[in-house]
């Protein structure tokens, strides 16, 4: 590739080269400006979280550069000793982790069945799953609120988890089926000839081979659940609410509590950002493999 390029370049006239350099610099400048604009929101939030509430209500975060000595971690200390915030942080983990594990497990089992097993009505069931991909969660809010109320899990972490599993499954099944289809059939045949049961094949051959897919799905589902507000807004109460709901309840006093809002929002972003930067390759794969939610 690079050899090709140098040959092509060699043929360019000086004029073309100058033009090329010029257009490259224009592109560079445009994209630098775009990148700066894209960064301003997050950077602004982060810098706001480093200022006292007094500073935040009298001047903008950009003045922090004029008085860098006024930077403080006070807001973080306050929030991390606030039981509502720490409790909801814990709730977020308690909701997101089991949801992710169960969606991956149940979704892979079904995905394997759709990819490698023969049963009547398979195609129609698969099409039903694809249809369910796009169902708005709004259609389930009222019925499930009643159902969960009737069986006594309305307002509990369990209700939130069940809701997320239900609406995470169509995507999980679709994604895992697509990944599992790519496993060479010889590997499965070989395992079958060795007398391995389907369950054994699933756990010893399919899942290990599909590990990148499992990682993609897990990261996607984890971020989805961690960042959810709507489901938790309805199905959790003050004891079981995740971070998003806890922060949202602060919005009514917007202006007087920039310290709580900006710091809380940033705390809620830390885990997703770590996950994102560590595993963004898998996250991208999950999106590419078909995301029509």
């Amino acid at each position: 590739m690079s050899a090709d390029l140098s040959i092509v370049r060699g043929k360019q006239t000086l004029g073309q080269r100058i033009l090329g350099f010029f257009s490259r610099s224009v592109v560079n400048i445009i994209l630098i400006v775009v990148a700066i604009f894209w960064l301003i929101p997050s950077v602004g939030l982060f810098l706001s979280s480093l200022r006292t509430v007094g500073d935040s209500s009298s001047s903008g975060w950009w003045t922090i550069f004029l008085e860098p000595t006024r930077i403080t971690l006070e807001n973080y200390a306050n929030l991390l000793s606030n039981p509502t915030i720490t409790g909801s942080f814990w709730n977020t983990i308690v909701i997101a982790v089991p949801t992710t594990i169960l969606v991956v497990l149940i979704g892979s089992l079904a995905g394997y069945a759709f990819a490698w097993m023969e049963f009547p009505g398979r195609d129609w069931l698969l099409i039903a799953v694809i249809v369910l991909l796009a169902v708005p969660i709004q259609v389930a809010l009222i019925p499930l609120a009643q159902m969960f109320g009737a069986i006594g899990i309305f307002g509990s972490v369990l209700g939130v988890i069940l809701f997320h599993i239900a609406f995470g499954l169509p995507f999980a099944i679709f994604l895992m089926r697509n990944f599992f289809m790519q496993i060479p059939s010889e590997l499965l045949e070989a395992a079958r000839l060795d007398g391995a049961s389907d369950l054994r094949i699933f756990f010893t051959v399919v899942l290990p081979l599909g590990l990148p897919a499992v990682a993609s799905l897990a990261i996607f589902q984890f971020l989805w659940t961690w960042n959810d507000m709507l489901v938790a807004l309805l199905f959790s109460n003050s004891q079981s609410q995740p971070l998003t709901v806890a922060i949202q309840s602060q919005l009514r006093q917007f202006g007087a509590n920039i310290d709580v809002l900006s710091t809380g929002a940033f705390i809620s972003m830390i885990i997703p950002l770590i996950v994102f930067f560590a595993f963004q390759r898998y996250f991208v794969q999950a999106l590419l493999a078909g995301s029509q939610r």
Binding site: V34, P41, S42, S59, N227, T244, I247, M269, F283
Partner: peptide, 30 residues
Amino acid sequence: LIIFMPMAISMLAAGVIFRMMFQESPQLGV
């Protein structure tokens, strides 16, 4: 990474960010 990063954060956090950015007072809203 810079352009894609907002996909990782919650719409709530994004909402807080944009509400702050677009505040009316030029002393507070960037």
